[in-house]
Each structure stands twice: as C-alpha cells, then as structure tokens.
Simulated assay, not measured.
Amino acid sequence: MHTQRKTLSTVGAVSAAAALGLLTACGGDKTGAGDAPAEPSVPVTGTHWTVDDVTANGKKIDAPGTKAHVAFDKKGRATGNFGCNGFGGTASVKGDTITVGKIISTKMSCGEKIDNLEKTLNDALQGKLKAKVSGGKLTLTTAKGDAITLSSEQPAELTGTRWELTGLLNKDVVDSLPKSAAGQAHLIFGKDGTVRGNLGCNQLNAKAEILDNGKIKLGPAGLTRKMCPGDAMKAERELVKLFDSTVDYEILHDKLKLTAADGKGVNASAVQQGKPEQGADDGS
C-alpha cells in the first residue's frame, strides 16, 4: 500500500473553534539549553479519539452512536465534538498530564439525552487531566475522579474510499460546492493507478499515480459531455484544472485535501472509510 502523506487524525473545521489556536506543543520541560523538548509519556496527539463513555459523580453515560470525539494536535489545539456540538480550545501535554483551557463550542440543542452527555463531557474535559493510554484506549481522569474513556480510530485509506467533494480551495479561502453538485461530486482512487468519480456534473476517469512524497500525479481528465446548471459547470471547470498535473494530498482522519502548486484545490470527506467500491481497485 502506498505511504500516505499525513494521516493525522483530527477533525474537520468547527465553526466555533475555527478562530481558536493553540494546544501548546506536545512536549515537556526542556532538559537544558538547546535540548529538544521531551516527548510526552502518553502518545495522545495525532489521533482521532472517539468517546466511549464519561463517568461523573459515579454515573456513567455511554456515547456510542453520537459524534463525540476529541483530537489533540502538536500546534496547541484540542478540537472535537461533544455529541452534537463542535468545540475547540487550548491544551498542553506534559508528561502524563493534559491541561485543557477554556473551551468554546457551538450552542445547538440536540435533545435531552445528548444535551446531558454534552454538558458532562464539557465539564470533564477541562483543567488538568491525567492521561493513560493502553491497547488503543485513552482514559482522561479529572482531579475529583471523573473520567472519560476514548478509543483510537484509524484514518481513512486514500484508495478504495469514496471521497465526497465538499469545497473548492483557493489558498486560505474555501467555497462550498453548488447545491446541484453536493452529494454527487466524488472521487475514488484505485490501487491500479486510476481515479474515477464525478465532478458535480460529468463522470470522470483519469490516471492517478500515488507517489511516495505525499503527492499524486494526475493524468488528463476524461469526462462525459453532459450539460448541467451553470454553477455546477463552473465548479467542474475549476476541478478539472487539478488534472494533468501533480497535486499534494493530505488525509486528516476522514478528510482529504488535494492542493495544486498555485494553492487551489478541493476538500473531501470519506463516505465509505476503507471499503473499496466495486472496480476501485481492480481497474474494472
């Protein structure tokens, strides 16, 4: 299998957390002038942690079936979802202690059961937390003994996954795809060196050589000749410009970003993680 460029397990953009920065670097104290920061004793960064349950005041609340998850990165961010609402905040990792600062989240009401889970998680996921990692499980324990249990989740595979296109990139600007293309525009990379899918209007076939340096060499786009609404055709013309060139790719848990040399590109989300569609890998 080809080496993926960056399989950092993190979450997609969260509106309430987008303006946040900053989980302090994932290191401990420096041991001396010029020394590199010590590695944390628990490897928590760079992983998508799905919440299994949270126990507070002796009462356990299960989270499966919700969107609840947490990710810590090395740039100083803690982001995720409490079950319905996205959140973001600052945090630092030192030894086996994670210190989470004030959290900002969206404010939707999602029903009494989810609201209760969200409030409990929000209260537990702040301040100094003792972290323990074992067998793909992470346990975060507060000073008063409340605990969150989480499981690591692997990032989506580049090949064999249906990547639904969600937004057009122009450097730091992201534009949503037209409604007429939403849910239809997608790409599926095959292990046979091809990519197929739909660009929001027309069906696509092209060569796609996945390189070892985090790049994909895309061949010219072979398209059907269907005429579609003007906004869909406009978006499709932008997407076609990515082909017959070499693009950078980056996988962040279930998100894929393809970026050309000029900073233009596309965002996509995994619809079928790691499950090849018929013909995706065998060239049919």
Rank of each mutant, 00 (worst) to 15 (best):
K113Q: 15
I188Q: 08
T24E: 14
A33V: 12
L150N: 04
S15Q: 11
T142D: 08
M227Q: 10
Q203I: 04
D192W: 07
N170I: 06
V266D: 00
M1K: 11
V247I: 13
V51F: 01
T142E: 08
E236C: 01
A33D: 13
K171Q: 15
L20A: 12
T3Y: 08
T10S: 13
A18G: 13
M1A: 15
K226I: 13
G80C: 09
L211M: 12
Q278D: 13
L211V: 03
K207A: 08
G222N: 07
D248E: 14
G88I: 02
K255C: 03
G167I: 05
A221Y: 03
S152V: 11
M233V: 10
P37I: 02
K74C: 15
K94L: 08
M233F: 11
G76P: 06
P40R: 01
L218F: 12
F87K: 02
T194C: 02
A268E: 04
E164I: 08
A261G: 07
G32H: 08
G80T: 07
A25Q: 12
D172I: 06
A280L: 01
P276T: 10
A280E: 00
T142V: 10
G274Q: 10
L242N: 00
D254N: 14
G230D: 15
D244K: 10
A91P: 08
A143N: 11
K179C: 05
S109N: 13
N198F: 01
N198Y: 04
A206K: 04
V93K: 02
G193E: 03
K113S: 15
G101V: 05
